[in-house]
Design a protein around this nucleic acid. Structure first.
Lengths: 152, 152
DNA sequence: ATCTGTGCAAAATCTTTGCATTAGC
DNA sequence: GCTAATGCAAAGATTTTGCACAGAT
């Protein structure tokens, strides 16, 4: 991944203008190794660019989602959570319920498998896999330290 | 799945008490052929039992979800949507993006398929399939393409 | 010069929660 | 009678939206 340099903003997801804020937001999203909420992102971004507004991050996340730079994983504790997509290919995400770590997974869905069913034609799907990462399996299931990227 | 008689409340999802409200809510949920929001449910229930409070429906839906009577499909337009589960078996849902109709689908996910990946152990997943039902394919579909975020 | 992106704050929603009351079991 | 379930209303929280302004193209 390592979108080095400062070119993340320009190459990652494109807004018409590449503002310092959006660049920082993209960089922060890219640095996330776990599933994150808009608030997590806002907090991370503000460490780099103080004063960024929440609305800006919401708007940027919408843009990033629309362009496939991040994917929505659903809702956790009332707020939407996202994961950075490291591949342009169609794929899914494995999310650790212990620490929130996210990794890519290939897609097991074959649309043809369902096409017959009632004449229903499958055109898309949404899948998120949950489980425990190696680290969390060996760890003595202590409750995830409440902090960023905490358990899902 | 015609839960005959008026015994839906008692057999379907169990609260400690079977109130008229919960029975009506269960019946209404069972009658839903499409994905529904809490508000849809509330509206339907009130036609049978006027005066039911929104909080009651929210509480009942939580109970129904916990017992597997309904499943959350995600969020559409800001509110959570659900579908009635007609099988106790593990399964998923096909949701028509045209009319919201829901039907059951078998699960394509083999946890073993992922277990190797980084030592990650898959323990669960969430999948919703989107597409168009036979009816909507022939109809001159007017609205809603397909959106992210569990959109219908 | 134009028009996207920003920030602040108010607004709009959806959900949850507190509390007194009602009513299953 | 014990206690879950209800209803109403207020509280909470997350997102969205309006507006005037700054900055990139």
């Amino acid at each position: 991944m390592a979108l080095d340099g400062g070119e993340l903003g320009r190459s990652a997801y494109v807004g018409a203008r590449v503002s310092p804020q959006r660049a920082a937001i993209a960089r922060a999203a890219d640095a996330m190794t776990s599933a994150f909420s808009v608030d997590d992102l806002l907090e991370a971004v503000r460490r780099q660019v103080p004063g960024v507004g929440a609305a800006t991050v919401y708007r940027a996340v919408s843009a990033m989602e629309a362009s496939g730079f991040v994917e929505s994983l659903g809702v956790r504790e009332g707020s939407a959570i996202y994961a950075r997509c490291h591949s342009g290919e169609h794929h899914h995400h494995l999310v650790c319920t212990g620490c929130g770590a996210v990794s890519d997974a290939e897609c097991p869905v074959a649309p043809e498998r369902y096409t017959a069913s009632d004449g229903f034609r499958v055109t898309g799907h949404s899948l998120v896999l949950y489980g425990q990462c190696a680290k969390c399996q060996s760890a003595p299931s202590s409750i995830s330290p409440h902090g960023r990227g905490g358990g899902i």
